[in-house]
């Protein structure tokens, strides 16, 4: 019977660990005032748009149509207020441009 009690103690300890873990995780998320991110703004959208333009002009050959389309879509989304969607497309365009220029 002693063994059973010992197993019980282990079980209780395990349960406690799990509960504490859950408590910590939920606790951390919603406490103080959130810090705003600067990369979700129309300004950043414009910044990226400029960078796409720069990178494209730096290319020796004309940019592939795919990149052009991505950049255009990004600009349009930013203009419509879908900033995060626009930024994602612009970033993708930058990455593709970098590849095209053999940079990375």
């Amino acid at each position: 019977m002693r063994g059973a009690y010992r197993i019980g103690a282990f079980a209780a300890a395990g349960a406690a660990t799990l509960l504490i873990e859950l408590a910590v995780v939920t606790d951390a998320s919603g406490q103080s005032a959130p810090t705003p991110l600067l990369t979700d703004t129309p300004q950043y959208c414009a910044e990226l748009s400029d960078e796409v333009e720069e990178d494209r002009q730096a290319l020796v050959s004309p940019a592939p149509a795919e990149i052009e389309q991505l950049a255009e879509e990004g600009r349009q989304l930013c203009a419509l207020g879908q900033v995060r969607g626009g930024i994602v497309r612009l970033r993708r365009a930058i990455v593709l441009l970098l590849k095209a220029s053999g940079h990375s």
Binding site: S29, G30, P34, T35, P36, L37, T41, V83
Partner: peptide, 18 residues
């Protein structure tokens, strides 16, 4: 972030995105 304790290396931080 003001809430970030100076002594901690790792932290969970609330942020605001758009």
């Amino acid at each position: 972030p003001t809430s970030l304790p100076l002594n901690r290396t790792w932290a969970e931080l609330p942020i605001e995105r758009a």
